[in-house]
Design a protein around this nucleic acid. Structure first.
Lengths: 328, 328
DNA sequence: CTGAAAGCGCTTACAG
DNA sequence: CTGAAAGCGCTTACAG
């Protein structure tokens, strides 16, 4: 037994077993190329034999580069509301970080006071940053020392690469589908105005409607089911002849359906309903929607930050597929 | 300016401003009582003035006590399935850890090979451990060096305190409610056999049924909506005269309702349906269920681990309230 | 009650 | 290409 069973192997154990110095072992382990092939061989083998895993706290100390990935969440209120979407992002990141012995923390980011973002840069405990629901002011406050270890789920900037779902295309497809299936008085329930994707989705809807010579009708929601109920009431009051409602989020669409049901309005007979996200319950509600590969997106963002390469990773849009079910 | 704006204050900065040594500053900051009232005063003020936050990586190095809270999840398969429930636990923990600059990681724990649990103890990068969906073998493998910084959501052990929802009581209440509202041929869809809460819930159901002189009918599910569909089919095949189905999870109950609907069986006219969890969509499905304060439970578990007191925190059951809606 | 010093496990200029 | 040494920011016996 080279190391006591109750103590994890350190780089010193690896170096000794490999017959090299700590420095050389470290170089091999960090991927430094100024090492002999022989050293690489020995150290790699020793590390495997001892099931060596780097201690990220020690590494953080040496590099002034922390042990946490901070998920900074743009939020209009100071207290963070963790919704289903964010939960999926966070737990995907936490799952991927486990192997690296790195942790994940979640922090709200005020939309109007981007100081908190600036602070990330000087925070020696942050290994990297994933921005969610971000805005231009927040992006503008990102310190350039964060370059290579910051990524955004949503909009990016010259400094911050992004990964997102291509919901612009799916919004085009959904709106077209509604028109092609005979709907003409189609309302959209959008997300909050401050969210960057709201403009993009509303834009897609407007384009298709204008091309078809149809009138646009937009009501603002907040992605919650409750806001779907409210928005549906508002739509019915303003445009009683509405024959389709496109909500940019399944939860909202489910609220819409609950409201329509309570008024004995038949779906899709009287009013068609479409959502976005394809959450588990969309299937059980027969909801027509479009896919949102949240886990894949979160995984891409996490890997980009974990790898922290100096080369800027490419901006990526994940495709979203229209899923036709019963409601539209 | 005592510290450059671009560098976070260290304990050295605090000590200097307070006019004491690093040692004394550290003692004040760690709550060591062998310090003068004067020192406490000075250091506390200096720390506040500099907005000092401890660097957990450095602390981890010094104490051999990590920077991550590991959420160990009992799992029959090696790849971890992160469901909604687990996501809520993880993101609650990640939110609470942010202030302490600590991160959260998620790791699957094999039910049959508890070595991974034992490894936690020797892992100098784990600040503490939260066990989820745990089993007796896993609990048995918890090293005593983890005492005071391990907690279980679910069953506990002499070494591991627990926090859980009192679903035994709510299962009694749900079953009684079904009987009181005239149902007699009540089936239960339970969770997987290996889950500790399954026995507890089945037990509650059996007790009430026996007391009422009624026959019990149990089918095993896995908490998913899909398993609800399957289980409903099975129930209808084995007991075509069933007049109520109690699923121990809302997602499963929603699957049950989808299956009943597809067979034109009226809910609650022909068959009453009850769930458990009170998830957001339960409300929009009119589902009768019982509350499950997941965030409160996760918060209690996280705080217990974060505080890492040597005194064992009390075992806690959070109450679950019956919520009567339309389906039962 | 207090401070100087050692040490936690790494990385990385520096000198060879 | 390699090793000895310094240093990252803390905590904690140790000696006073």
């Amino acid at each position: 037994m080279l190391t006591p069973a109750d103590r994890a192997a350190t780089i010193f154990d690896v170096a000794r077993l490999a017959g090299v110095s700590k420095s050389t072992a470290s170089r091999v382990l960090t991927g430094d190329r100024r090492v002999s092939a022989d050293a690489v061989e020995q150290v790699t083998q020793a590390a495997a034999q001892l099931a060596y895993v780097r201690n990220p706290a020690a590494r953080a100390m040496a590099t002034s580069n922390g042990t946490r990935i901070v998920i900074g969440v743009g939020s209009p209120r100071p207290t963070l509301v963790v919704d289903d979407y964010l939960s999926r992002v966070v737990s995907t990141a936490a799952r991927l970080c486990a192997a690296e012995r790195i942790g994940v923390a979640v922090q709200p980011l005020s939309l109007h006071n981007p100081d908190a973002v600036a602070a990330f840069a000087g925070d020696p405990t942050a290994h990297g940053v994933i921005l969610v629901n971000t805005t231009a002011p927040i992006l503008g406050a990102v310190d350039r020392r964060l370059a290579g270890r910051v990524v955004s789920i949503g909009i990016g900037s010259p400094l911050v690469p992004f990964v997102d779902v291509d919901n612009y295309t799916s919004a085009l497809a959904t709106t077209r589908h509604l028109i092609e299936s005979g709907r003409r008085r189609i309302a959209m329930i959008s997300g909050p105005r401050w969210m960057q994707c709201t403009a993009r989705l509303t834009q897609a809807y407007r384009e298709v409607m204008h091309d078809a010579g149809l009138q646009t009708r937009v009501v603002v929601g907040d992605f919650s089911a409750e806001s779907g109920r409210l928005a549906a009431s508002k739509v019915l009051r303003r445009w009683p002849d509405v024959d389709a409602i496109f909500a940019v989020c399944d939860a909202t669409a489910i609220g819409v359906m609950a409201e329509l049901r309570s008024r004995q309005i038949d779906v899709p007979g009287d009013v068609a309903v479409a959502g976005f996200d394809d959450i588990a319950f969309a299937q059980f509600s027969g909801l027509t929607t479009a896919t949102h590969p949240v886990e894949a997106i979160a995984e891409a963002a996490t890997r980009a930050v974990l790898e922290a390469s100096t080369a800027r990773p490419p901006d990526t849009f994940f495709p979203s597929q229209l899923v036709l079910r019963k409601t539209a």
